[in-house]
Amino acid sequence: MSEKTVLIVDDSRVSRMLIKSVVVDRHPDWAILESGSGDEALTHSDEDIDLMIIDFNMPGMDGMTLAEKMKSLYPSAYISMLTANVQESTQQRADSLGIGFEKKPITEDKIAGIMSQIE
């Protein structure tokens, strides 16, 4: 099993901690990048990233705009929204962008499900 790199983008530090703990638990060898905003996430765009877990509702750039940018920068990476914005319209936008969509609250099963896309 090869080492992967995961980018976690969420303005909540606790949420990043929760996601990170599941990733580390399952794959201690995977590299984890964290960002508290969309703009900060884009500063990682020179790195190899295999998986992105992105919150929607963040100050500044929203997660969907970030996902759109990342999708063109990393066409082969798996991107999933992980969001409290659970409206049908948000899910439809994620579907049309060709990215995953998972509803908060964060659970181990949900993160494991997202991770399984690249395992």
């Binding site: 909540s12 530090r13 606790v14 949420s15 509702n57 969001t83 409290a84 914005n85 659970v86 409206q87 049908e88 319209s89 908060k104 609250p105």
Partner: peptide, 21 residues
Amino acid sequence: RDYITEILNISMGSAASVLSE
């Protein structure tokens, strides 16, 4: 504060989904 904000963010997101319907 971060955790409370996130809890309320999730609950408001869920409420907004119902409101949207």
